[in-house]
Design a protein around this nucleic acid. Structure first.
Lengths: 139, 139
DNA sequence: ATTAATGCAAACACTTTGCAATGGA
DNA sequence: TCCATTGCAAAGTGTTTGCATTAAT
C-alpha cells in the first residue's frame, strides 16, 4: 500500500527514506491542505521519533521538486497541497478548513493598470463558512 | 497635515494618541501594503520610543473598527491595507512588493462543487515580476 | 564508501500578552 | 479622575538551521 508513492518518487533522485514515504503516502490525493504540524502529528503515529524539522525539510524538498505546492491562503501558517495543477481554493473564515475549487478562471487584466508587472499567474481564494461551522452557529 | 487623520478618526470612539495619529497618517492613501515592521520603522523616526507592540495593537484595533484590512498575500508576514473597499492584488514573486488591482471580478461558482460552504466573498491574487526585479534579472 | 537525510536543540522571525506607568477623555 | 493606551519584557507560534549520527544509494 505504500507502493504507489515509491513508484512516483523513484524519478526524483531523492533518497527514499521511510519517513519520506510516509509523508508522500499521507499527501497522496490529500485535499485537506494540511500544515506541517498536521502532517507531523499523523506521521508520528507510525514513526514516533520523526522530528518536525524533517517534515519541514521534506516538504521543502518536495516543493523544490515540484511535487507539492505551498498554499498561502491561511495567514497563520503555511498549508501544503499535493495537487500542483492550477486550481483555486475556499477557506472557512471560522475553522480555517480549506477546500479545492476545481473551477478555473481565465482572468485577463484590461489596460495597463499593472504595467509595472509582468503577470505570471493568479490564484482565487474564496472565503466562506463551512457547513460544520454554519450548523454550530445555528445551534 | 495630520488634520485629515484626526477628522477621520474622531468618530471611532478611540483615543487619539500621537502614536495612533502617526500610524493613521502613514497609512492614509498608502498603497504599499506595509507590514507591521515596515510601519514601525517609519513611525520610529517621529516617535523614537514607540514599540512594535503598539503598532500591532493599533493595527488590530483599526482592523476591528474596519479601518484597515489584513492582506494575507505574503506568506511570510501580515500586510496591511487602508483600502477596505473590495479590490484585488498582485505580488512580485521576487521582492514581495504588493500592488493594487483596481479591477474587480464577478466570479460565480457553477454547480454544487462547494455545497459545503456558504460563500462570502473572494480575493484574486495575481503573481508576477515587478519592473525593478525584471530589470535586475536582465542585468 | 559516499553522501544525503534524520533528529535534536538552538536560533530565528513574526505576533501576542501581562502589567506597571502614562496620558487622553 | 478614570480607563484606555503605551512601552517594555516575556512568552507564544511557526519555521529554519547547525551539526553529529544514521542510513539509503
Amino acid at each position: 500500500m505504500i507502493i504507489t508513492p515509491v513508484k512516483k518518487y523513484r524519478d526524483t533522485g531523492l533518497k527514499l527514506t521511510p519517513q519520506r514515504l510516509a509523508i508522500l503516502d499521507y499527501l497522496e490525493g490529500n485535499t485537506g491542505h494540511p500544515s506541517a504540524e498536521d502532517i507531523y502529528r499523523v506521521i508520528l503515529k507510525k514513526f514516533p521519533t520523526i522530528s518536525l524539522a524533517t517534515v519541514y525539510n521534506t516538504l521543502d524538498t518536495l516543493r523544490l521538486k515540484g511535487r507539492v505546492r505551498e498554499v498561502s491562503i491561511d495567514p497563520e501558517k503555511k498549508r501544503f497541497d499535493p495537487n500542483t495543477k492550477p486550481h483555486n481554493h475556499i477557506i472557512c473564515v471560522k475553522c480555517k478548513k480549506v477546500a479545492d475549487i476545481k473551477e478555473t478562471f481565465d482572468l485577463g487584466l484590461v489596460g495597463n493598470q499593472v504595467s509595472d508587472f509582468e503577470i505570471l499567474g493568479h490564484h482565487v481564494e474564496f472565503h466562506g463558512i463551512c457547513s460544520a461551522c454554519k450548523s454550530m452557529a445555528n445551534a
